[in-house]
Design a protein around this nucleic acid. Structure first.
Lengths: 224, 224
DNA sequence: TCAAAAGTGTTAGATTTACACCCATGA
DNA sequence: TCATGGGTGTAAATCTAACACTTTTGA
């Protein structure tokens, strides 16, 4: 408290947008806000940043509290700081988005928390500026999915090319040509065909693929 | 102080990265830090977010204090919140970058403030995590310049195609073919040729162009 | 036997890249 | 007159987009 004491402090929170894919549509998790102000409104899940954690850690803790999962793909969307964005007090919030495979998410936990998966196309009005956060998160994610293989984070470990295509379409919001899509996938060495066949989705069966992280990280692009 | 009083507050600052173009190279403004901790280190210019301003306003105020200019192009880079990022106290900082035309910037003011234009290629170690902020800002800006006409913010109102090309090259960090570059510019209706000729840069003289904001905003892409 | 999803190539069009010379002028 | 930067077009290569039929098999 010695250096900056002439300046005032503010509350800083994180809000996490959790995207999931249910084989058809891109969805996100929202819940009814459990505290005042705004109790009962649809809202993102958030938490305050405390003194002993970085903002990224705060986001991870929030996400883990909510999903029971960690090590999920998560990226910062940005800081939101309009003076009156929160109807109660001055709070600056940093938004993050995370990607999960819906099946990894415990339905029991979901119900206990009173959370719902809602279609990206049908997001209701949310608390505070959360709709804006979601809009920006979607924009970032659409950008990302074109340059990085984040799709895998939204699918089971093994997936069919049709699943991958449906996901891609759901994210970018338009249909793509099957043959052209598969051609592009074939060029990506980090998407490996396995000898396994999925028989659930069709009578004929579809080859299961998986993401090979090692191959990807050796790619000149390396990230993750 | 009624709703969130169980949570602790933190200091929030903004740091502004000011990019400029001096006809040859992309540069940014840095100065010697005027306060403890870190007094004397090279640093971005920043300021604390006070209770009566949004974070965007805080950034604008900071920028105006620094340059005497307002209405500059500015975008948020993101929030930086490692616990010990600031050597003095816990401070979360939100970075912004702004674009200015170096000639609009008062040299007198620059000297008074003890600021220097440094080449993007030769940025010295900066205070705290400021190098990281700059790195991310550059990445964002390089992205942007490919999809939006932000170049104009770094050039005088009237400019030659060679200037525009030099700027573009300085930003993306590689040379481009003159004929191909000019072909692309010709397709952009919002870059208008004026009847004026610049005689400073060559004996023959080069046509001066200008950015037509109206045409651009009628473009299907509309932004700014 | 047939409905439903899987799988597979080719061609035309659009976009991108590479490349070299003449022009106008002030010094 | 010559050195300097301004200005211009074409062809090859690459990338993208459009498009339709055969296969497998469980019901």
């Amino acid at each position: 408290m010695t250096f900056y004491k002439d300046h005032s402090k503010v509350w800083v929170s994180v809000d996490v947008i959790i995207f999931g894919f249910d084989e058809q549509k891109l969805k996100m998790l929202i819940g009814r806000r459990q505290m005042d102000p705004g109790r009962g409104e649809w809202s993102l899940y958030g938490g305050f940043v405390s003194a002993d954690e970085s903002i990224d850690e705060a986001a991870e803790h929030t996400l883990e509290k909510l999903t029971g999962l960690n090590n999920l793909y998560m990226r910062q969307v940005g800081a939101f700081g309009a003076i009156d964005r929160d109807p109660g007090e001055r709070v600056i919030s940093i938004a993050y988005y995370a990607l999960i495979n819906v099946k990894d998410y415990d339905e029991h936990l979901r119900k206990e928390r009173g959370l719902e998966w809602v279609d990206i196309q049908e997001i209701p009005p949310l608390y505070s500026d959360h709709n804006l956060m979601v809009k920006q998160a979607l924009k970032k994610m659409r950008q990302k999915i074109k340059t990085e293989p984040i799709s895998f984070r939204l699918l089971p470990q093994l997936f069919t090319l049709t699943q991958l295509q449906r996901l891609y379409e759901a994210v970018i919001g338009e249909e793509v040509d099957k043959r052209n899509f598969r051609k592009r996938i074939k060029d990506m060495d980090f998407i490996e065909k396995t000898p396994l066949i999925d028989k659930k989705s069709s009578k004929r069966g579809a080859a299961l693929y998986r993401f090979n992280k090692k191959v990807y990280s050796e790619d000149p692009n390396f990230k993750l």
